[in-house]
Design a protein around this nucleic acid. Sequence first.
DNA 1: CAGGACATGTAAACCGTTACATGATTAA
DNA 2: TTAATCATGTAACGGTTTACATGTCCTG
Lengths: 169, 169
Amino acid sequence: MPKRRILPYVLLGLINNKGELSGYQISQEFKNEVGDFWHASHSQIYPELARMKDDGWVKDKDDGKSTYYLITDLGHQVLRSWMEEPLQDNEELFSLKLYFVRDGNDPLLKILLKQELQLNQEKYAHLQDRLQEVFYNETEIKNNFGHYLILTRAIEREKNHIEWLKNKL
Amino acid sequence: MPKRRILPYVLLGLINNKGELSGYQISQEFKNEVGDFWHASHSQIYPELARMKDDGWVKDKDDGKSTYYLITDLGHQVLRSWMEEPLQDNEELFSLKLYFVRDGNDPLLKILLKQELQLNQEKYAHLQDRLQEVFYNETEIKNNFGHYLILTRAIEREKNHIEWLKNKL
DNA sequence: CAGGACATGTAAACCGTTACATGATTAA
DNA sequence: TTAATCATGTAACGGTTTACATGTCCTG
């Protein structure tokens, strides 16, 4: 399967959230809030915006100083359908998509939480299996102490995350 | 600053842990334990091993079936100095390096924990600042609920991690 | 009027994945 | 004997970063 591109959806989400944005403003966005969850450099942003315009996801509005991009009806559909796509592999997608959910009553919120819960329960089970398989006695722990530490830490981390997710559902 | 390559150090660490490994065995390693913390495909591994041999980090031993690689004295130095380099940017480096620390009494263990603690305290402070800046009242929370959720989740996550690190120090 | 921020763009290099190839060995 | 696993390699493609480039506007 060809790896899904994420950048265009991020740009679409940002433009949708703010109403209109120029390429420069988008690159500034990545230095602020959304920067904690995703990043892109201006050399990616400008060509991507051009492509999105070609595809009819956005339309542009030039005031002579900057070119601002606004989301089109098609863009709305594309964004929504991406948001509704099941989460997979990429760990950061959950945070990123959640960032774009503005309304606490949007049903997407619960859907995302449920999907993430599912993924994390699988991961938790997988890590527990590893722990059983690899560290079956004290000697193994002693001889691979760093591995033991991060594995138990990863398990704790998943547990915390699962608890948080359940709590929000 | 040019971004540091990590792959050669991972291969070096694996070879060092196991004594000797063929390219194929390394690719299998990534399907097992270390696969939870790092990954590389065989098309990266083989050329990288050749480069490492050219650089004198490893030497090879061919039994007609497979080519096995062993770490050299230079390789040991390179690995150790990489392990001692301060952690930075890349979040996964902490787990990865810890994976290579086998002896619980290796002073590197505490050094890594301290470095990670430092990084995480900075990140925690940064996220707290964001929370204060962006969500100064209930309206902001209501209008950006997804962002609020992941930001508070990220803060909780850092807090848990910091507690764990302190506990292990 | 100089330096920094605004604003946009392309080119090169780098790293990683997927696909393309090939051949030996082993187990059903 | 044929399919799976072992074993190694290169080529093509895609996405990201860094560097190269250029010009405007605003502020001290």
